[in-house]
Design a protein around this nucleic acid. Structure first.
Lengths: 242, 242
DNA sequence: CGTTTGATTGACACGAGTCAACACCAGTGG
DNA sequence: CCACTGGTGTTGACTCGTGTCAATCAAACG
């Protein structure tokens, strides 16, 4: 069974034998990181690219008044700082949400990929563009959906994204995120996040506990959120050439 | 005086003579588009890339309940659908906000660039990553800043971005955006957007009319918004290689 | 000139934030 | 083995920022 990174890249572009071999070698020595550790902080210029093989992480910023905003979830197969390789300085921080297995890809390996492995390079850019599309949808989520819709939409998105890398279990997934963190991702208070959860439970739509989320009625949930998965660009195999 | 696109690319990577010549040729036949016209709609798979030479445009989505969310402003020098070239299908729409001069770059020209003009290609990816950083900041804006702060922060960002392409006039810029569109940008109602504007006027921070925005006290505005321009990545000349 | 679109204002309603208390663990150390 | 602790989840009461509705005004326009 290939790791999540290879599975994800294969979603977008079929990888050759040598491609896969290189990626396996790159991922061969993962680090184990505890939950709630910063992988990179705003202002740093990392000289490695971090890749999540296992666990949840997030991108976040702290605004001056002290509140936190989580702008993205990093799931197994996601890269943390591909952009910092080009933009140099991180404009936000990345932290683990659960215990993670993380690979640090050295600069030389990244240069080798972009030089000699065009299929992988194309898939990486594809992924960067999908990340951008997800950010746009999150703007819609926090700006134009009610609290209940926003939380629901997030759950629908995570189910789709985790399914794509083989991490959907039954009708749910592992979800090691506290309600406070959930609140910071949909831009509300922790108390209100809790009220939304309670409501979704009462409506028999979900079962949520510290370890995982079970979705009891997927269609109802999608309907409630107005979820349309087109922005994830998961259905198209093999891209045009860049 | 080079056009906004060439100015913008030069911010990130110094372009050679042939680079500049090619870009000038590509931009030589712009179209004139009226205000409030869709350039591309969600679901389309355009076979050209649109480039704004003059005027304001925006990315937007309509959510099922009928409200609109504007996720990005496209300023002179910005490309509308670079990603659709790779992801195929647009997951959002793009519309002009003011009369625009727009270039439609044919598929063949894009392929020629990515094949033979590495400096331009690198600059385009750089720009895509900065766009992503702007999206992240917009999530912070709508999710963790008050209405007044969010509007103020948007003004600070636009001043910085327009200054970068030479479109800052005095302490302000042309701003052909209605209050209703502004409201859809920061995720609030048009009525409340108006109240925020009134407040900023009363505090002698801005002068806003249908044609333009003048900022009376830039430092106070930045302070109020908690504006830090690092996410625009404007200060770094010449990128690392991708 | 009517017509239309956008800006402005006030009254009122409501969703969500805040504050505070309490419950429920899981871990820790005595 | 059990008190103690701190983090998380839960709940209620109250407040307040924004949304909604509706009327009016102003400016642009054919």
């Amino acid at each position: 069974m290939p790791n999540a990174f290879i599975r994800k890249l294969n979603l977008f572009a079929p990888l050759s034998g040598p491609d896969t071999k290189l990626l396996e070698q790159i991922c061969s020595k993962p680090l184990s990181i505890n939950a709630r550790q910063d992988l990179i902080q705003e202002g740093e210029a990392p000289d490695v690219v971090h890749l999540i093989l296992d666990g949840f992480a997030c991108r976040y910023k702290i605004v001056p008044e002290g509140t936190r905003s989580i702008m993205a979830y990093l799931l197994p197969g996601d890269m943390c700082d591909w952009h910092a390789f080009i933009l140099r300085e991180m404009d936000h921080s990345v932290a683990t949400l659960s215990p993670c297995r993380v690979v640090e890809i050295p600069r030389a390996a990244v240069l080798e990929i972009t030089d000699k492995y065009p299929a992988i390079t194309r898939a990486l850019w594809w992924i960067a563009l999908v990340d951008e599309a997800v950010l746009r949808e999150w703007i819609v989520n926090v700006s134009r959906r009610s609290a209940t819709e926003a939380v629901t939409h997030l759950f629908c998105e995570l189910l789709a994204r985790l399914e794509a890398v083989g991490l959907r279990v039954e009708n749910g997934f592992e979800f090691p995120v506290t309600q406070s963190e959930l609140a910071d991702t949909v831009g509300m208070s922790a108390v209100h996040a809790n009220r939304v959860i309670q409501e979704l439970r009462a409506r028999k739509l979900i079962v949520l506990n510290p370890h995982g989320l079970q979705i009891l009625d997927i269609e109802a949930l999608k309907q409630l959120a107005g979820f349309r998965p087109n922005y994830l660009h998961l259905s198209i195999k093999g891209g045009r050439e860049a």
